[in-house]
Design a binder for these strands. Sequence first.
DNA 1: AGTTGTGAACACTTTCACAGCT
DNA 2: AGCTGTGAAAGTGTTCACAACT
Lengths: 214, 214
Amino acid sequence: MKRIADSTVRRLSMYLRYLEDLDTRGQQTASSDELAHLCGTTPAQVRKDLSFFGSFGKRGLGYPVHELTAHLREILGLQREWKVLIIGAGKIGAALANYRGFRQRGFTVAGVYDNDPNKVGQPWGEAIVRPMDALEADLNRDDAPIAVLAIPAEGAQAVVDRLVKAGVRAILNFAPTQITVPPHVNLKSVNMAMELEGLSFALTNPGYLDEGAA
Amino acid sequence: MKRIADSTVRRLSMYLRYLEDLDTRGQQTASSDELAHLCGTTPAQVRKDLSFFGSFGKRGLGYPVHELTAHLREILGLQREWKVLIIGAGKIGAALANYRGFRQRGFTVAGVYDNDPNKVGQPWGEAIVRPMDALEADLNRDDAPIAVLAIPAEGAQAVVDRLVKAGVRAILNFAPTQITVPPHVNLKSVNMAMELEGLSFALTNPGYLDEGAA
DNA sequence: AGTTGTGAACACTTTCACAGCT
DNA sequence: AGCTGTGAAAGTGTTCACAACT
């Protein structure tokens, strides 16, 4: 099976976003040119990305909006519900859970965990914060969810090890530290500090980077 | 001036993080091999990245930890203070401002802005939430800060246009939408929904991606 | 005429491998 | 002997350009 680039998957996600918009507005078809403009990429890129998964367009016409939306949802695995475990009852997890698109795309909070005795037992959205110790007992290996790691860097790897042992196969890491997982586990890291430092670099060294990139 | 890859800058940021750790523990030198292991990359990559900016290492010995730390801080532009404007007095901005490393690296919250009348005037960390209308009047063109955009997708581009007009030259965007800026403005976007969908894709299509990547 | 789908060209990034310094 | 610095090679992702189709 041919390997697909991470950047491609991110663009698919973006195409879906804008196709849903167009679909809602009742637009029937969209050309690669239109999609490219909406998503800030090039028509050729759009066509390459989509052609990886099939021939969804009609020459001379463009892509059928509604149909392509459905295809992308299926490709991205968004036709089902994904249970998400929030590790760390702080602001980041809350920001994610609050976000409208989170539920809309089929992600539901299956549980919130924290070590802080002041937080455990407190309501958190529609859930109650559970103690971190309860992690393993709560997890059902047959329906292991996605875990969002929103705790400080210290101890993050230890928690990840526990999650992996408990059957979690996908982790979105917000802890500003390097995490390692076995090859069968999917890990994505978002490091806000790193992004800010990237801006600091760009402002400090104009010309090293071509500016204006997203 | 030779262009530098975005991925390189992100790795520099990571090297700095771990070098600071080593420095605190009093370690004198570190080899590219050691740094690579800490940061989850390869020794050759470390050497290439660093060699872009100079010859900081000593053959046979490795890199002087303290000295390299200082070099990296300077390269990344972290020897000065960066004022950061938080646009949107919600959870994301709060998460960022709460993060210890934020201040440690010289980023300080210069102001928090929101449209919500219930939030305006309320304390937010050490600041008071200001009305969005006050943006232009508050901004000093000579000392334009970095803006963190933590508002919903709707209206995000309009706010960006105002920020740019007011002299902001770097924006960290958390709004889940495509933003465009003129070429002299630096934009970085973090899209949590997109990351989660990437995990959904990976879980749904094992084999398309090589797993276990960070 | 208009737009897709795609092999080939190009550009960029990472890895290799080794000369050269300490 | 050990480790850096780097040109060359390999690998990966993007853009081009055009044949094929509606």
